[in-house]
Design a binder for these strands. Structure first.
Lengths: 112, 112
DNA sequence: CTACTATACATAGATTATCTTTGTAAAGAA
DNA sequence: TTCTTTACAAAGATAATCTATGTATAGTAG
């Protein structure tokens, strides 16, 4: 079965996670749910993509993590945006916008 | 030196090449130049990305290739969009637009 | 005549990101 | 007690891009 509808646009997951955490700290599973739901099921964050991405964000100190208990009474690791992470989010948004503009110029050459 | 400004948004190169060939057949090097120039130097197609991508497009029969001589009197391999390639371009544009909408909903949650 | 730059193709290898698969574990419902 | 959902995480496979390398020739500068 082809129809390989992509789950994500490669290179955007970290931006999506950081943006999600702007609204407040969340645990991993909830981050993935939020992205999927907010995107109206267009984006899906596989666990095998999510947790490595969170590890990268921790390594760069763009987020911090704490163990706790969720509203559903489950042991969870909650991630929180750091000031450096907030700056990084800004850079990622700018870089993404820049690339999108470039792509737009190639894809819509009719525009002035 | 960080500042790792990306050359491309991963997953978009084939779409950019197919779109470039909509305007007529071009040789590889000229495709890369066109993308770079049209994007106003935002996008840069490294040769190590370009030629493997062209091989993939050939394999899928989305383009055909012919050897010839360029306007600058160089031996060149010219690529031409096939009808299947044109259909694929449509699918890629639709898939990309879909992902962008999803990303937009996550990044701009304020919108209705 | 020589050196350099730009044009042009291509592959090999490294890196990175994502996806698939597998594993653990516990809460709550059937 | 079995199933589903929630929740974390690592291992391995796949895929796309980037870096480095190699070949070759046209044209220009010196």
């Amino acid at each position: 079965m082809p129809t390989a509808t992509r789950d994500l646009l490669p290179g955007t997951l970290e931006m999506l996670i950081l943006q999600t955490l702007r609204g407040g700290a969340l645990h991993g599973y909830a981050i993935a749910q939020h992205i999927q739901q907010t995107s109206q099921d267009v984006l899906q964050v596989e666990e095998g993509s999510l947790y490595p991405a969170l590890q990268r964000l921790l390594r760069e100190r763009w987020v911090t993590a704490n163990w706790g208990i969720s509203a559903r009474n489950r042991k969870v690791r909650t991630y929180k945006l750091t000031p450096a992470g907030r700056k990084q989010l800004g850079r990622e948004i700018a870089g993404f916008a820049r690339l999108l503009e470039g792509i737009g110029r190639v894809m819509r050459p009719a525009e002035s």
